[in-house]
Design a protein around this nucleic acid. Structure first.
Length: 363
DNA sequence: GTTATTTGACCATA
DNA sequence: TATGGTCAAATAAC
């Protein structure tokens, strides 16, 4: 491949910035995370993600398919979850980790850490858990709580969760470690006639009443868990800072892909299952929504909602009825929706990453 | 009565 | 032996 001098310099700047951000994130995670620190860490991790995605996109001439694959691959180690928490994903091919590698927690022989989160609301994950133990941990002022999937016995679901409040700082910050994948959903789906309610169904109710400090009073309230699941970035859409961030990202992206002016997306909808019509690709719009940018209400025809739900260990549901939504089977792997910005055809996967506020609304 | 939580005891591991 | 993870009887909530 042949890079121009300007492109190389821009790529270098992006990666150097990314290096700086990773050091900053590392420093933040090492210290006590109070509310502001957590917020800052989330921002840094998001910016890091953007840097990676933009850099990858700049490398696109190297190999379209390879970069597309990387863009669609599981996100980097640090990403954002449904409620402003930080999610540290364990690499999928090497989930079995050494003892005490993660947060000093011992692991049984067959235990696999699926992910760890630093969050202020440890129960906002859309799953049902049953507490089975509590332990005072050395060098910690707070006990560690042990949870199993509610359906661990009925459906032999091996999913577990450990919640540990971190020392210092207000509001309280918790380190949440998830062990093993949920299998209760598969078993529920496999049993004809049985409700699809599983450990991660948002429609399921939980009788959690302790310990009080790790509970969230907005568990089932509107705008709490449900709002987070449906529109993970809806809270960011409001506010000048988010708008500035979007502007910066869009400017950067537009520069990278050739000076294109991106369209103004439609406002987020309360019904999340929107996607850009494949048949009606925009041919360019003057500052507004592209003329042909038809938004088709579709229950995850491209499988995107299913993928997102799987990542969050949750079932998708309709926000208006609070009932589960049936998810269609994923489209073939080569069916990658694109978005036309100016004269550039941008994979929707990339847009989802660098411009999540709007692409979530588009789907 | 049923189900979930609490908590002390026991077990596994380094 | 120290520590973390799990079990299970007792207890509480619904």
């Amino acid at each position: 491949m042949a890079f121009g001098q300007e492109t190389m310099e821009q790529l270098y700047r992006e990666l150097a910035g990314g290096h700086h951000l990773s050091a900053k994130l590392h420093a933040l995670l090492e210290g006590p995370l109070d509310g502001r620190g957590l917020e800052e860490a989330v921002e840094v991790s998001r910016e890091l993600r953007r840097v990676f995605m933009v850099s990858l996109y700049m490398l696109r001439p190297y190999s379209d398919s390879r970069v597309d694959e990387m863009v669609r691959a599981p996100p980097p180690d640090t990403t954002r979850t449904t409620d402003n928490s930080i999610c540290l994903l364990t690499p999928t091919k090497d989930k079995r980790i050494r003892r005490e590698e993660v947060s000093g927690i011992r692991r049984g022989r067959e235990e696999m850490v699926t992910r760890t989160e630093i969050t202020q609301s440890p129960h906002k994950d859309g799953c049902q858990w049953r507490k089975y133990g509590q332990k005072i941990i050395q060098n910690s002022n707070f006990p560690r709580y042990y949870f199993k999937c509610t359906f661990s016995r009925d459906r032999r679901c091996a999913a577990k969760k450990q919640v540990q409040r971190r020392d210092g700082g207000e509001p309280p910050v918790y380190l949440v470690t998830y062990l093993n994948e949920h299998t209760c959903q598969l078993q529920a789906a496999a049993a004809p006639g049985t409700p699809t309610t599983a450990g991660c169904s948002p429609t399921a109710t939980s009788r959690v009443h302790s310990p009080p400090e790790v509970l969230d009073s907005t568990w089932n309230s509107a705008g709490g868990l449900y709002g987070s699941v449906v529109l993970p970035h809806a809270d960011d859409v409001v506010g000048g800072a988010a708008a500035e961030e979007n502007a910066a990202i869009v400017t950067c992206l537009a520069t990278v892909i050739g000076g294109a002016v991106p369209p103004t997306p439609p406002p987020p909808s309360s019904s999340f299952s929107w996607k850009l019509s494949e048949e009606a690709r925009p041919s360019g719009g003057a500052g507004g929504v592209p003329a042909a940018a038809a938004f088709v209400h579709s229950p995850s025809a491209d499988g995107s909602v299913a993928d997102e739900a799987a990542e969050m260990d949750c079932f998708p549901y309709d926000v208006s009825t609070l009932s589960p939504v049936e998810v269609a089977a994923p489209a073939p792997a080569d069916h990658h929706p694109h978005l036309l910005i100016g004269s550039c055809d941008v994979p929707l996967a990339l847009m989802e990453t660098v411009w999540p506020h709007y692409t979530n609304a588009w789907r």
